[in-house]
Amino acid sequence: MQRVNMIMAESPGLITICLLGYLLSAECTVFLDHENANKILNRPKRYNSGKLEEFVQGNLERECMEEKCSFEEAREVFENTERTTEFWKQYVDGDQCESNPCLNGGSCKDDINSYECWCPFGFEGKNCELDVTCNIKNGRCEQFCKNSADNKVVCSCTEGYRLAENQKSCEPAVPFPCGRVSVSQTSKLTRAETVFPDVDYVNSTEAETILDNITQSTQSFNDFTRVVGGEDAKPGQFPWQVVLNGKVDAFCGGSIVNEKWIVTAAHCVETGVKITVVAGEHNIEETEHTEQKRNVIRIIPHHNYNAAINKYNHDIALLELDEPLVLNSYVTPICIADKEYTNIFLKFGSGYVSGWGRVFHKGRSALVLQYLRVPLVDRATCLRSTKFTIYNNMFCAGFHEGGRDSCQGDSGGPHVTEVEGTSFLTGIISWGEECAMKGKYGIYTKVSRYVNWIKEKTKLT
């Protein structure tokens, strides 16, 4: 034993070699072989497995989906700052455009905790909710729209109204504003409101030439003092309507412009014939205590009207009353817009006519005020429907199939267009061939041609 100890002390290297040989010859039971080890760690190889990531292109799944990435790591994937920024906006807080917040056709661009709407022409605001041009839906104005110097929408209202708090709607500024039905039992019968379409306001006024200088022999019209197929109006439903009495009662109609003036057809009036105007009328054979009678003290036909040349060209006249009318729910003026808007309103496509005229061709006159909704007829169809001249200051309205029309005794009465609950004068009943005849239409004086003249002559002093 002493000898062994001496050998170990003198030859430590020998001992180490012996131990190493023993270990190498022993069977290893701690580690699995290569094949079995792979069965336990069965993990798919990654895209760049075996390579240094710093030297390969980034992978979106590896960089940002398996674990949260930084902007720089995302930049490695896209290799483009702009594309990385677009991805980053949604990656950080989701897609803010998912709810489609942009209105009126706006395009949404996502941002971090926010979004941006790219608005089409005519709109602005956070969600493109603000109209900035009158060309689109009248700028959301209830009545009139004008573009300011910086191309912003400025709404306005006709006389007797003021802008509401929203700067879009119009509200009454006087007790009985024009064009409004205020009798409670008839307010439910107000005709369907007309909503502004998209309009090209630059070209809204037709490029028409008034044929002022045409000389033409007097034409022989049949029954051209021209509501057939209409309905009984309720008291106060058309408070701007008046009836004219002269040699015979209810020979023509008219509309209240203001307390002192009536507008009617020029062919209705004769110099030297006494005319009485009755406002607030409903049943011409009954006294309903809503009527107001006034005498006409002055007749002003349009300066281009000449019955000797043509009885229905420039067929418009103004009547001055001896005493002002007292405005109330049964006696209310009709609204008159400017030339541009009167023309736009007419193009809405349908209007209402009213009167006490004959209820059928050569038949009896109506006792109760009649009204009828009539569609506008395109000019080409209008011209083809008659052998008589249709001037540019006239328009056609009615039904091709016949059966409904204005008729004798309705002449001078109103053709009105309702705009968001307020009625505007767009025409004056003038003439036609018979009444409600198939293929024939009622012919009306186009008020847009005469609004400046009306307003100039009827100013209240």
Rank of each mutant, 00 (worst) to 15 (best):
G254S: 00
N48K: 10
W118D: 02
V242F: 00
T445N: 04
R43L: 08
D378M: 04
E53S: 10
N166Y: 02
F78M: 14
K339Y: 12
A250D: 06
L369E: 06
K68R: 13
Y441K: 02
H289K: 13
K260R: 13
S99K: 12
E142N: 04
W356K: 09
G246H: 08
E433H: 12
E72V: 15
R162F: 09
T389L: 10
W356E: 02
I284F: 13
T158A: 10
F121W: 08
D378W: 03
S204L: 14
E142R: 04
F238V: 05
Q216R: 05
D150S: 12
T290S: 11
G412F: 07
P324T: 03
K440Q: 14
P239Q: 01
Q216F: 09
G413N: 05
S11A: 11
F176V: 08
R3H: 09
I214R: 09
T218N: 14
A380K: 12
R75A: 11
V195N: 14
F55E: 15
V451W: 02
E286D: 10
D200H: 05
P101G: 01
I429R: 15
F196N: 14
K387F: 05
C102M: 00
C128I: 01
E281S: 10
T190W: 12
H400Q: 15
K137M: 15
S350D: 08
T209Y: 09
V248P: 09
N135P: 05
F224Y: 14
A337D: 01
G349H: 09
G432T: 12
C157R: 01
R46T: 13
E35M: 09
T417I: 05
N104Y: 03
E171S: 07
T264H: 01
E53P: 10
W453C: 00
D150T: 12
V243L: 09
F31V: 15
I334A: 03
H361E: 11
R3V: 13
P301L: 12
G105T: 02
E35I: 10
G122H: 04
A380E: 13
H303S: 07
R384S: 10
K362N: 13
E281G: 12
V273G: 10
D95H: 14
K347I: 03
G58A: 14
R364V: 10
T290K: 05
T445D: 01
V447F: 01
Y305E: 01
V183F: 12
I284L: 15
W431P: 06
C102W: 01
V447N: 00
A149P: 10
K362S: 11
Y391S: 13
V30I: 14
A250H: 12
V296E: 01
G160K: 02
F55S: 15
L369P: 14
Y330D: 04
V447C: 03
V257E: 00
I454R: 00
K168R: 11
G439S: 13
W240D: 00
V278R: 07
H282G: 09
H314A: 06
C145H: 02
R140H: 09
F196I: 14
E165D: 12
S49P: 14
E54K: 08
D249L: 08
R379I: 11
G355Q: 12
T386E: 07
D223Y: 06
F123D: 00
A173G: 07
V368D: 04
H303R: 07
H302M: 02
H400W: 09
E259N: 06
M437N: 08
I284D: 06
E340Q: 13
A192T: 15
C155Q: 00
